Amino acid sequence: MMAQLPGLGIVGCGVIAETYLRALKGPCANDWRLAAVCDLDVERARTVTDGTGASVYGSLEELLADPGVDAVVVLLPNYLHAQATIPALEAGKAVLVEKPMATTLEDCDRMIATAERTGALLMVGMTSRFRSSYRAAFERLRAGEFGALGLISEYCNYRIRPDWYTRPWLKRAETCGGGMFLQMGIHNLDRAVWLAGSTPQWVHAAIRDRCGNWADETGAATLGLDGGALIQFQTDGLATQGRNETVLHCQDVTVSVNARRITIHRQTEPEVIEFQEDGFANELREFAAAVREGGPSPLPGAEGRRALALALACYESNRTQAVVRFDAPPWT
């Protein structure tokens, strides 16, 4: 176990880096020491780390050579995740890679194999699973408090910021991996299967590009689970009213869950439980604990691969206009 705070290196200083830096400067200040950042735009890296004392590098190689860096967070465009994660693991650094884990299952497999070969810790950033609201719902569902689960409805509705479309990699499926359905909706797919605790058997999906600015903005999918329950999932990147929420339709109650509250609907007045939005902070804290203690990974690569496999199966269903059946789980 480490005697001092582990040193964290941030790889990529785009929009999402600001969220991580806020957590590192605030609720996670006693969990990590921000050791270094790297970005091709060195001036941008200097700006986002101003006042932190972190070293600034213009290349991944320089950051990985820094002995003060114990772990890295990979915040690059999706198609570069494997290209940064594999060298970091080979350098003996623990890695937290943002979702989606990669754009292909082959890249996921290479990342997982490298972690197994080197013994370095690999974690995938699926923030929803670390939110206190979702964990509370998970625990109560598992304890049987809600009755048998019949259906999960997932909503991923956003008004996408116009500046997203100024980033070329987000506009092309080969560099992003997909559009709204993958980039944002992978959280919903992952948490729905996690909450259900069941294996998907088939999926049927329709995914659309409505305005030509992204690979896709709108989609809907139904997944059948081995226990008989269903997952219904929709995305809308052009929504005038945002909604990022899960609804659990159970035998005894209907439960709505989002980042800040759980609402349990019974025959009487609903029970409302409020939470703080703490997903990124909890994710970074658990990553730090795993680094200090030498593992295990709070969210292993195999589970990040599963989420990508499900998203890609949805795209395949849309392409073929047919149900995609899983003769074997797509994450094995």
Results as ranks from 00 to 15, higher is better:
residue 320 T to Y: 03
residue 54 A to I: 11
residue 244 N to F: 15
residue 23 A to R: 08
residue 61 E to N: 14
residue 275 F to I: 11
residue 12 G to C: 14
residue 321 Q to K: 03
residue 118 T to C: 09
residue 101 M to L: 04
residue 53 G to E: 08
residue 52 T to A: 02
residue 225 L to N: 01
residue 25 K to F: 04
residue 287 F to N: 06
residue 277 E to W: 10
residue 186 I to T: 15
residue 239 A to M: 09
residue 42 V to D: 03
residue 37 V to Y: 13
residue 1 M to A: 14
residue 327 D to R: 12
residue 227 G to C: 12
residue 85 T to H: 01
residue 82 A to G: 05
residue 92 G to V: 11
residue 97 V to N: 04
residue 235 T to V: 02
residue 191 R to I: 08
residue 3 A to V: 08
residue 134 Y to N: 09
residue 71 A to N: 03
residue 122 L to R: 02
residue 309 A to L: 01
residue 314 C to F: 00
residue 8 L to D: 02
residue 237 G to V: 06
residue 10 I to K: 05
residue 140 R to W: 13
residue 165 Y to Q: 07
residue 247 V to T: 12
residue 190 D to P: 02
residue 126 M to A: 10
residue 158 Y to D: 06
residue 152 I to E: 12
residue 230 L to E: 13
residue 37 V to E: 10
residue 237 G to K: 11
residue 97 V to L: 01
residue 55 S to P: 04
residue 283 E to G: 12
residue 9 G to K: 09
residue 327 D to A: 15
residue 279 G to C: 11
residue 121 L to Q: 14
residue 12 G to S: 11
residue 273 I to G: 04
residue 27 P to H: 00
residue 45 A to K: 08
residue 37 V to T: 08
residue 300 P to W: 07
residue 311 A to L: 04
residue 15 V to S: 07
residue 14 G to Y: 04
residue 304 G to Q: 13
residue 278 D to P: 05
residue 272 V to T: 14
residue 180 M to P: 08
residue 182 L to Q: 00
residue 190 D to E: 05
residue 283 E to A: 11
residue 315 Y to T: 03
residue 297 S to E: 02
residue 280 F to D: 03
residue 253 V to T: 12
residue 22 R to L: 15
residue 83 Q to T: 14
residue 62 E to W: 14
residue 69 V to N: 04
residue 162 P to C: 02
residue 175 T to Y: 02
residue 297 S to Y: 04
residue 14 G to A: 09
residue 178 G to F: 01
residue 102 A to Q: 00
residue 8 L to R: 02
residue 86 I to N: 03
residue 94 A to N: 07
residue 80 L to F: 03
residue 322 A to L: 04
residue 40 L to E: 14
residue 28 C to N: 01
residue 171 K to S: 14
residue 85 T to Y: 00
residue 58 G to Q: 06
residue 254 T to W: 10
residue 190 D to Q: 03
residue 319 R to L: 11
residue 125 G to T: 05
residue 315 Y to C: 03
residue 60 L to S: 08
residue 205 A to N: 13
residue 130 F to A: 12
residue 292 R to M: 11
residue 54 A to H: 08
residue 156 C to N: 07
residue 75 L to V: 06
residue 324 V to Y: 03
residue 326 F to S: 12
residue 298 P to M: 00
residue 35 A to H: 10
residue 8 L to W: 01
residue 25 K to I: 03
residue 197 G to F: 09
residue 231 I to W: 07
residue 80 L to E: 01
residue 133 S to K: 07
residue 85 T to N: 03
residue 12 G to I: 13
residue 228 G to V: 09
residue 264 I to S: 10
residue 310 L to C: 02
residue 14 G to K: 09
residue 138 F to T: 10
residue 156 C to R: 05
residue 162 P to M: 04
residue 12 G to V: 09
residue 198 S to M: 14
residue 299 L to G: 10
residue 59 S to G: 00
residue 156 C to E: 06
residue 265 H to G: 09
residue 272 V to R: 06
residue 104 T to M: 00
residue 159 R to D: 09
residue 37 V to P: 09
residue 175 T to W: 00
